[in-house]
Design a binder for these strands. Sequence first.
DNA 1: AGCACGCCGACT
DNA 2: GTCGGCGTGCTC
Length: 823
Amino acid sequence: MTRRPPDPPSTGTVYADVVLPLALARTYTYQVPEEFVGQLQAGLRVEVQFSKNKHYAGIIRRLHGTAPGFKTKPILSVIDVEPLLTERQLELWEWMADYYCCTLGEVMTAGLPSHLKMASETIITLGPMFSDDITELDEDEYLIVEALTLQSELSLKDIRDILQRKTVYPVIRGLLDRHVIFPKEEFSDRYKPLEVKCVRFGPKYRTEAERISAFDLVSRSEKQTAVLLEYLDVSRKQPYVRRADLSKRTGASDAVIKALVKKDIFEFYDHEVSRLGGAEANARAGALSREQQEALGAVRGCHAAGKPALIHGVTGSGKTRVYLELMLEEIDAGRQVLYLLPEIALTGQITKRLQQVLGDKILVYHSRLNNMERVEIWKAVLSGEKSVVGPRSALFLPFTKLGLVVVDEEHDPSYKQQEPSPRYNGRDVAMYLAHQHGARSILGSATPSLESWENARSEKYGLVTMRERYGGTALPEMTVANSRETDDKGMHHPFFTPTLIENIRATIERGEQVILFQNRRGFAPVYFCPTCEWSVQCVNCDVTLTYHKYQHRLRCHCCGYVTSPPEHCPACGEVQLKLSGTGTEKIEDELKIFLPEARIARMDLDTTRGKNALGQLLQQFEVGELDILVGTQMVTKGLDFDRVGLVGVISADQLLRFPDFRADERAFQLMLQVAGRAGRRERQGKVIIQAHEESHPVLTDVLAADYENFIQREADNRRAHAFPPYRKMIRIQLRHPRRPTAEEGAKLMGKWLAYALGDLVEGPFEPSIARLRTYYLQDIVLRLPPHVAELKRVKDIIQRATDKLATTKGLSGVRVVVDVDPY
DNA sequence: AGCACGCCGACT
DNA sequence: GTCGGCGTGCTC
């Protein structure tokens, strides 16, 4: 990257405004010692002391000659030679801090890989690759390495003592760069290849004839014959056969399989399940369809007119193919591309496909990367050579030649960071980023959000529509099943209609797969006493605990609190406690009763928590080791499988009843997205939605796959009730461990805001979950006409009110959380 | 965010 | 008489 000329040292001392990785509102001004004057510029990291004993790696925001009206501390050392951040990134940080009402330090904390944010407490250890190349080390470095071989870990503070000098960061940085030492956390995060224990025919049984002869060898054993047959059956469908699977399916013990190995018929081996990365660039895949060709032209048209393009393309229309074409163009022209996806979709086939076509030109920025890999990507992006596919955090990478930004699944709520600050929406920040770089941008979805649709309607974005599924596959047949439906004996099941069960059965019999969607995890969300109606509440939050049958535990889905179910009701002593409500676990459980033969798996937060659990689950489903996948929202995202013949929505009512102004939009998106998982290639898929309220207008639109009708009506509703996107919404949440204090603070805050803003202020009121993680909550909501100048004024008012509250006796402990566009 | 300073209750 | 509770204010 080109070096910016250092700011000219004006008369006298030079000062540097430094951003610190703390939740501080402003930058802090340090004095630049004479010796550093020539080498400093914005974006470099420097070591500074902050308060008594703390040293941090801060980032220079700007250099100037204006002496502040207080004594300044000196910059202790310069960590980087070249800036680690670009001017644009610093501007982006400032914009985010400003727009989302948070501090620069909070943006910095979110935006820098922790490896680059050293502080005095950082613990370092000796790297595993260190091969006593002591000759390479200078005296200071040698001292550190020697200390580490004796003590294994040291804090930066220790190192300062060892070296007997104040400035140790440059030395540390040098060692880090050469991978001699590591910040400690990295070891916990080392990845290993995913391997599964498998069986295959031994070397003597490679040919068909040899294999047939194997049957003679085992003819005396019924079990071994069965295993052999099963093996042949499974191996026809899957590229590898798991040892555990084989015994499970045949009911044969592991000893039976071992016996076959002993006879040299089988052998064990570890099958390495493919991981992302290391792909070779292929030729461009297949030709564009006519519609894709047209869409491509339309997107180019938008870009030529300087507008972002919103692609509304039904699932399977091949939006990715269109993105790819444009991405290739940018990359060929030597520019960078940022392709954003919701986190979960990153595990899917899309990343693989991008890497197949773009090879090592594109890097996957994944939440599972370790620190070192993150820093490597950071540097590669800074050099302008690599493009990136990643979740919203990839927005913080130091792009220098950004030419195109793609936001796929732009409607997805997980683009919005909820906690902690900065509470930003990745899609919106992406648009700002593109604008900042003068880059083109594309938003894509099968169900565009109302905000984006409205932007297209008002011609801020260009709209590109793709209506056909690539290859002409028909859209799935969608039907609704009344939840009250009974079977031929007049029996009614609380969560499976006969229609759904019959269809599941038929689908599996055809050798196809089923996805069932239930938007709630666990077994039952309420554990209660039928006598006195007492129910188990979370100790930290104002919610009931969800029963998880598999672990026989009660869990809080807000804070993670776990406890054992009580033996009897503590209020009245009743011993027969009951469960109510339905989660994915229960669906899975009940389904096993109906379909004991089916291979069922569950996909929710609980089953995908482990490192490779999600990938493993998807892999299993992909190769056909599973018949039914029961899951939460997760199953609506990024799943792209050919053999899904049926998608079932267990309860549409549950989605539509949600008390939020976006409930309808969310429900519509979720249902249409999950429906899109059905029948992707030759075959038409089927979707069955169970509901009590069959004629709900949202359901009617879902069944007709009528986005236009839905979004038009939704827009009218929102406009009529003054909701976003026709109003700017800001939520101000006040939190305190004591309810009266939270209430008092909120009342006061509400009064001040109402004084300045009148009836734009609603509340304070208690949110539906009144206590969260031991804090009592109070909300104040502002709904403003969407004018930018107005917004600045409002944010100043909020800031002043927050400051005022912080200096009010007795209420200074009330935390104020501002959430801009809180949806 | 961390941390020191400071002003009110149960202890060696 | 002190130790320590956390409420308050500051860090260039």
